[in-house]
């Protein structure tokens, strides 16, 4: 009887886990399919804060455009300060197949455009807490998902009801490319926007905390207006990056020429 009970118990547990995984994947599918606009232009401020609270501020102009269902092009031009001015970044973000994303960085001090190899995509983007890999969308099939539960995030603007979903990379290659061994994702129930995430770094038992502090609906598209990414070791904050968006326009016409190496080398 005891044995039978144990078998039934294990079967129920297994069924519950499978249900949790299916439900988590279904939520992630919806989050991925969410309309994020066919194009976007914004001015972005990157604030870098070190553990001594010393701040550095960088201004950027960003452009992104969906080329087709599986390809998005993005360009970032650094406007200031002078030590990064004219640095620019180009991404061809491919989804839906095994192709690696293409990324190039133009370095004006060297007069050189450098392709970012896949092996470097877990490196910090311009000294921030975001990596090159964070600048592209994640492949859904690169992870297995588990619904961990539901929660409420209290914001000054109100409460957000979220699902907490664990995402585990399917293989070592995904870990090597992103630098994350595990992620916990917080997806809003009302609009399927990823509002928070915890990224477990493969090195030095550090965790990066991404938090969308401000979100606005612009022409029907939910846009993250302020996002923090904080790198912590235990409870100690090592470094923090705050991205603040302004002058955002969505679904505007953008000339494709701006998403070329020619454009990032010439600058705005």
């Amino acid at each position: 009887m005891k044995k039978l009970l144990l078998v039934t118990f294990s079967a129920l547990l297994g069924a519950s886990s499978a249900f949790a995984a299916d439900q988590a994947r279904s939520i992630m599918d919806k989050a991925d399919a969410r309309d994020d606009g066919a194009s976007m232009v914004s001015t972005m401020q990157m604030t870098l804060i070190d553990k001594n609270n010393k701040q550095r501020i960088r201004q950027m102009r960003t452009f992104s455009k969906d080329v087709d269902a599986n390809t998005e092009h993005k360009t970032i031009f650094f406007l200031s300060p002078s030590d990064v001015k004219n640095t620019s970044f180009l991404t061809y973000d491919y989804s839906g197949d095994d192709k690696d994303d293409d990324q190039w960085m133009y370095l004006p001090a060297l007069k050189k455009t450098k392709r970012i190899p896949a092996s470097d995509k877990d490196a910090a983007f311009m000294g921030s807490d975001f990596s090159y890999s964070d600048m592209t969308d994640k492949e859904l099939d690169d992870y297995t998902y588990k619904l961990l539960g539901e929660s409420t995030i209290k914001r000054t603007q109100g409460e957000e009801q979220v699902w907490k979903i664990e995402a585990l990379p399917v293989n070592q290659a995904v870990i090597d490319e992103t630098g994350y061994t595990k992620s916990v994702l917080y997806v809003r129930k009302d609009n399927y926007v990823l509002t928070r995430a915890k990224f477990y770094l493969k090195k030095a038992s550090r965790i990066k905390y991404m938090d969308v502090r401000k979100m606005e609906e612009i022409d029907g598209i939910w846009v993250a207006m302020q996002t923090t990414m904080t790198t912590k070791q235990g409870k100690q904050t090592l470094h923090k990056t705050i991205l603040t968006n302004s002058a955002v326009t969505v679904n505007t016409t953008i000339d494709s020429d701006i998403f070329t190496i020619r454009a990032i080398e010439k600058g705005l």
Binding site: Q59, S80, K198, D211, Q226
Partner: peptide, 30 residues
């Protein structure tokens, strides 16, 4: 109960670790 225990055993899950203090940033425009 067991499922919920598994969920709560998630590292740092009880104390999510997110900073909650307000972020006040003055946006400069070049």
């Amino acid at each position: 109960l067991l499922l919920s225990l598994v969920a709560n055993a998630e590292d740092g899950f009880d104390d999510d670790g997110f900073d909650t203090e307000p972020v006040v940033i003055a946006v400069d425009h070049a």
